[in-house]
């Protein structure tokens, strides 16, 4: 299933995330060494890279969970480093974040997991509205029957999907997926890829999708960037990268057996 829809970039859409010269290190370990990236409205961008290359660190910086050492970061026209706590919270409500390890609250049921961001952030919301929103989100990830279960009773793939549903519940303008298909079987992976595309089409969200999975990158993303040794290699569409002369890109692609 190849993506055929028109590329958002070609529509001259406005940028929703712009990163310029971003650096981040932990002690002696330099993880990001000058990252530039622009994501446009309605666009899905895949970030590929080896394990430990700093992909998760990058998206944690975007939502302000980690502070960059250097560089500028503008998200939805806000300069993240200049925001006060309250402004940062307002920005975060417009961003959905699906964690690598799902990060479901394991003291709460699936329903409560999804309702939590809603009830804590939207004042005076009646129970019926919450229920509807939760059901809609569960429907979107195809797990409507799991509402009353505890996270511990779910499989890894189901947890991942609930994590995505929780990130979607506030109808974010930007979605950040951290390895949405890692460790899943091909069929479930394909379902998640479809879900990512649906979200993009339905709400016109922009997404950054971190992945090792080239099928996922190919089927969900308008553009692919590769993080190698703390820097991005030139970005491009899947086919462009697939037939590139760049040895580092070739190395990465040659380990994945897809045509």
């Amino acid at each position: 299933m190849e993506k055929t829809k028109p590329k958002a970039v070609e529509n001259q859409a406005e940028p929703v995330i712009s990163i310029l010269g971003l650096h981040k290190s932990f002690g002696k370990l330099d993880v990001l060494k000058g990252i530039d990236l622009t994501v446009y409205k309605g666009e899905n961008v895949a970030v590929l890279g080896k394990s430990g290359s700093g992909k998760s660190v990058l998206i944690k910086i975007i939502v302000g969970l980690l502070k960059p050492d250097l560089g500028s970061l503008t998200v939805l026209e806000k300069k993240v480093e200049k925001l006060t706590g309250k402004e940062l919270d307002e920005l975060r409500l417009r961003i959905g974040f699906s964690f690598q390890g799902s990060a479901l609250y394991d003291s709460m049921s699936v329903f409560q997991n999804l309702a939590f961001p809603l009830t804590m952030n939207v004042k005076h919301l009646d129970k019926q509205k919450v229920k509807e929103a939760v059901e809609e989100a569960l429907e979107a990830v195809g797990l409507k029957d799991k509402a009353e279960q505890m996270p511990a009773e779910l499989s890894g793939g189901q947890r991942k999907r609930i994590g995505i549903a929780r990130a979607l519940i506030l109808k974010p303008e930007i979605m950040l997926y951290d390895e949405p298909t890692a460790g899943l079987d091909p069929i479930t992976s394909a379902e998640i890829n479809e879900l990512i595309n649906e979200v993009q089409e339905k709400y016109n969200t922009s997404s950054i999708i971190i992945t090792h999975d080239l099928t996922c990158a190919k089927n969900t993303c308008d553009r692919i960037v590769m993080l190698v040794e703390g820097k991005f290699l030139p970005s491009g569409k899947f086919d462009e990268l697939f037939h590139t002369d760049n040895q580092q890109v070739k190395d990465f692609f040659s380990y994945n057996f897809i045509q």
């Binding site: 944690k60 939502v63 969970l65 919270d89 307002e90 975060r92 409500l93 961003i95 974040f97 964690f99 690598q100 390890g101 990060a103 479901l104 609250y105 394991d106 003291s107 939590f116 961001p117 804590m120 952030n121 929780r166 506030l170």
Partner: peptide, 25 residues
């Protein structure tokens, strides 16, 4: 044990990105 396991499984960060103050909650 409860808070540390929430910390290591990123549940505390998940609260933060949902604009919920985990320190308070």
């Amino acid at each position: 044990a409860e808070l540390s396991s929430m910390k290591v499984t990123e549940q505390i960060e998940a609260m933060e990105v949902s604009a919920i103050n985990p320190f308070k909650y």
